[in-house]
Design a protein around this nucleic acid. Sequence first.
DNA 1: CTGTTGACTTAAG
DNA 2: ACTTAAGCCAACA
Length: 106
Amino acid sequence: MTEKKREKSFSDRIYEAVSRIPRGTVATYGQIAAAAGNGGAARAVGNALHRNPLPGVIPCHRVVSAQGRLAPHFAFGGEGQQQKLLEAEGVEVIDCRVDLKKYQMR
DNA sequence: CTGTTGACTTAAG
DNA sequence: ACTTAAGCCAACA
């Protein structure tokens, strides 16, 4: 039957994309945007996560900038929380940065 | 609908 | 390494 394409909201795709990040791996906002179907909307991705009421549901700690940098100033829970979570998953975090060459989702 | 903001990205100085 | 500028997109007032 003619299935109606229920297009999820932008933030919903972000949630899916971020959730699909393998454990012990990180992804950049650009990758999330591309995974959400909007390559280039890296800005909107960050905004969506920030404004989206999905704390605890989205592993934002796996989302890093293109330079492998985290967001300690806006991180949930606490500043060191992000780094702690990443390290707990096997990601080596150094100075709020991760080695994209090894941990970025490819 | 318009304008501003922002957890981005890349380039240039 | 840091700052500024421009580009792109979505949510909010």
